[in-house]
Nucleic acid binder design. Structure first.
Lengths: 214, 214
DNA sequence: CGTATTCTCAAACGATCGTTTGATTCGAAC
DNA sequence: GTTCGAATCAAACGATCGTTTGAGAATACG
């Protein structure tokens, strides 16, 4: 059974990612996962300890990379005088798009990520906050520099909206009837383009509240 | 056990709505639902036929009302010469906010709705499309009237983004740390306000494509 | 080689799942 | 009061769930 170039752990993670995306965390059983990964049922508990730990590991594997890429993209343009709002948005949205573009199941993961938001699970939420918190804060700082008229609170509200739209778009939930000849990935890339343009305009909207002093 | 002013069917629907919102469709069992509704386990299959039919009925009950309200709000301002973009957005977003404001579990339903999008289930998707299709089309027509420079395709992309952000915001997924003293409902109302402003600016963003002839 | 460690395997554990059954209770109609 | 359909009930159905077990295969190291 070990004809695959991937290890047992890797095959489990890949199969779990795909099945969690399709059927949800509760909806995908370990028997489905292990069958798809071509490993024994007990391998999950042997390598990960439990189903919950497996779920956590599915997240950690991808989020680490996503975090790194976003901060890297931001680093090349932060603090520079000629940075545009669109460029910062691209640094935020682009890596998520790249992630969905990787052949190794990244496209499935963006749906898993959307599921995680829908789960509204407090444990998972804290896990995401701990891994994402500093990233969001750095982006917020850069956005604040480019949008000095927005209060901190107003800015966070708008970034929250961007994140929601991004999550929704990357997971390919939309009402837009994707044409058969348009590949899923091409659809996502178009969505990202539209999202950057839309979000830039939304962020630039005049603030209804008095601008912060100085 | 029949001390409740609500019928068995209504109590099942309410309990199911709440538990589906919290644990998902697969995650909430009929035993949990019937226990919360104070009815016998067999009542679900007696009154609804199956768990899937129950899920469908949870949707139908609320979506009918949401559809009606949205079209009603749109009807009072469509075709009028002085209609603003913000007013149409309010007609689209407001009823969803109202729904979440109803005491009878509407707040839970908006989370159920977000779950449904995350499910990515083709059957459910068709069901939503059939119930929502004409509503979206009517709104699109009104938006098109107010934004003649946008191509039809461009407009649909942007409305899709608005729907994503709305779904995400109403379900209260956000990264924004809601302060304890701020009630969940007040949070949603603030989110709706920000969303209208953000979306109006996003929709007004200049189109990168040539405007449709004439 | 032998030995220790890591990994895989079939099988089973108790718990819980959605669903069905058949008896019982209830409320109106006659 | 009797009858009859609707509603509720406890109990059980087979299936599937996550997890555990203990024996065997594979691998690494002396």
């Amino acid at each position: 059974m070990n004809s695959s170039p991937f290890s047992t752990k890797e095959r489990i993670l890949g199969a779990a990612e795909s099945l969690f995306a399709t059927h949800g965390f509760a909806g995908a059983s370990l028997r489905q996962v292990t069958a798809a990964a071509n490993v024994n049922l007990a391998a999950v508990n042997y390598h990960f300890g439990s189903k919950d730990k497996l779920i956590e590991e599915v997240f950690r594997r991808r989020l680490d990379e996503l975090n790194t890429r976003r901060l890297g993209a931001l680093g090349t343009l932060a603090q520079k005088p000629d940075t545009t709002l669109e460029a910062v948005l691209e640094a935020y949205i682009g890596p998520a798009l790249d992630l969905s573009r990787t052949g190794g199941g990244g496209a499935a993961f963006v749906r898993v990520l959307a599921r995680a938001y829908a789960e509204h699970n407090e444990t998972l939420r804290r896990f995401l906050s701990e891994n994402y918190g500093h990233v969001l804060r750095q982006f917020a700082a850069e956005f604040q520099r480019l949008l000095p008229a927005l209060s901190k609170e107003e800015l966070y509200w708008r970034l929250d909206i961007v994140t929601g739209a991004l999550t929704y778009a990357m997971a390919d939930f939309g009402i837009i009837q994707r044409k058969n000849e348009v590949a899923e990935q091409a659809h996502r890339e178009q969505a990202a383009e539209h999202l950057v343009r839309f979000a830039a305009a939304g962020l630039r909207a005049p603030s209804p509240h008095p601008a912060p002093r100085a």
